[in-house]
């Protein structure tokens, strides 16, 4: 992770997932499906530049299993904390 760049935090609820595969289809670098077809988040803290693609995955998920929010600025903490 490059220090200081804004990141997103992406979570997927596998208990909700119905294996539609929309996320893995539009953003394979971020989402995958396990052998049972359930969502696996490959990159939980993607670059904020992926925001619109991630939003699309959130929108398309038929069971609202994906959530995305700005990540906590962990790098800033390191900077200030020395």
């Amino acid at each position: 992770m490059v220090s200081g760049e804004p990141r997103l935090a992406v979570r997927a609820d596998r208990t909700r997932c119905c294996g539609s595969g929309n996320c893995a289809s539009i953003l394979p670098e971020m989402f995958d499906q396990d052998d049972e077809g359930l969502v696996v988040v490959r990159e939980p803290y993607p670059d904020a530049g992926l925001r619109s693609a991630v939003d699309q995955a959130v929108l398309l998920c038929p069971v609202q299993a994906i959530e995305a929010s700005p990540a906590e600025p962990v790098d800033a903490r390191f900077r200030f904390g020395g």
Partner: peptide, 15 residues
């Protein structure tokens, strides 16, 4: 429904 569907989703993943 979900229990039954989950026995099938693995056959239809994108990959």
């Amino acid at each position: 429904h979900d229990e039954l569907r989950r026995l099938l989703t693995g056959f239809f993943t994108v990959r």
